[in-house]
Design a protein around this nucleic acid. Structure first.
Lengths: 215, 215
DNA sequence: GTCTATAGCCAGATAGAC
DNA sequence: GTCTATCTGGCTATAGAC
């Protein structure tokens, strides 16, 4: 009886330990992969970051490729819901643009490496992209398209294709993060100045877009 | 006398051969590095692409790092003059935006991997960026800033900071190329459809920006 | 200048003790 | 589950023949 109880206790402890090790590996892998990419990352570096042995990485995730995929999926599943806000939200078009720009920029400031990571790896492996995207049954643009058509008909906004508007909104919000080093160079801004400029964009981007489309 | 003449001929032939080998290496390196990045590229692959032996890469460029830097500088010196068109051109602000969007999109369609390559490597190595940028004595934004201030004062355009406008223009023009796989997924477009959409952007982007800022 | 062959290193993955 | 030690393959770079 005592043995059973002890085994139970040991299992609980094991379970807890497993989970925390597994997640601490995933977190470390996120940090390294998002900074260095799949090719640039080293398993040893991830192990060091997680404070564990290199062999454990393989114990939990079998291979570098699989660990990478876990990180990528996790990153993508963090980004995708943000897109949903602009595609499948019930608010008016102007409110959508305002909320999205504000929220999205705040979101990326918290996860600065994320968009670049996703885009970079998608570019290196476009088929892989489609694979992941398909799994994630990712947001549908139909609702957004209908909303734009309606607003154009009502005369609230100038004629514009939903695809183009969608691309414009994301470009204005995301690109300044991805091209930060380039812009810092061209505009001759240091880190603090650049971050301040991004802060202003939380409202300025929405204004810019709304001015562009409102009648 | 005949010997001298023969030597001369041989030297010419050598010189010619050297140059073409060197440039064919550089071209091959561009192709591979821009698709796979510094870490993902393999010297063997570059040699195969150039149709020569791997040892020759080291004969001409000493190391992978130096070959990479040659490619990067070459790519950057291709991109920088494009920026100049919007910063240091004498035309009116609206014409600038129209010309830039049209020309720049045409330019990237010809060099689709270029912006992503530059941005990616700049992100991995921001100090290196500054190093390269400094060498290239790259475009100054002062003239553009003055032009914007003047137009705002004249009341031609709505109040906007030159930095923000510059970022907006580049974002709208460049990001659709960098994030092509992502947009193809979200918008459910195949290659041809996506390229057609980019073709439309040659005029639509300028319209969008001008609508956003004109009074 | 161009090639073949190989040195030397480093990273991913596994074996096996605890 | 976690560690140390090691295998194995692949990659950059060089030596040396032609």
């Amino acid at each position: 009886m005592l043995t059973i109880w002890l085994n139970y206790l040991v299992n609980i402890m094991k379970k807890t330990k497993d989970t925390t090790t597994e997640t601490s590996i995933l977190n470390a892998a996120k940090t390294i992969f998002q900074q260095k990419g799949m090719d640039g990352a080293r398993m040893q570096e991830i192990a060091d970051e997680a404070g564990i042995n290199k062999a454990l990485l393989h114990y939990y995730y079998r291979s570098k490729q699989l660990l990478f995929e876990a990180v990528f999926k996790s990153a993508f599943s963090l980004l995708a819901p943000q897109m949903n806000k602009i595609l499948n939200d019930d608010s008016s078009i102007f409110d959508k643009i305002k909320n999205f720009s504000n929220n999205y920029i705040s979101f990326i400031i918290k996860h600065p490496y994320l968009p670049n990571f996703i885009i970079q790896e998608l570019n290196k492996n476009p088929e892989f992209a489609i694979h992941i995207l398909a799994e994630n049954k990712f947001p549908n643009i139909e609702k957004f398209k209908n909303q734009i058509s309606e607003e154009v008909l009502k005369g609230t906004i100038k004629p514009i294709k939903a695809d183009q508007l969608f691309i414009n909104i994301l470009s204005l919000n995301i690109f300044p993060f991805i091209a930060a080093p380039l812009f810092k160079g061209f505009l001759n801004l240091n880190n603090d100045e650049y971050n301040l400029m991004l802060e202003h964009r939380k409202t300025e981007v929405a204004e810019f877009i709304i001015n562009a489309i409102k009648v």
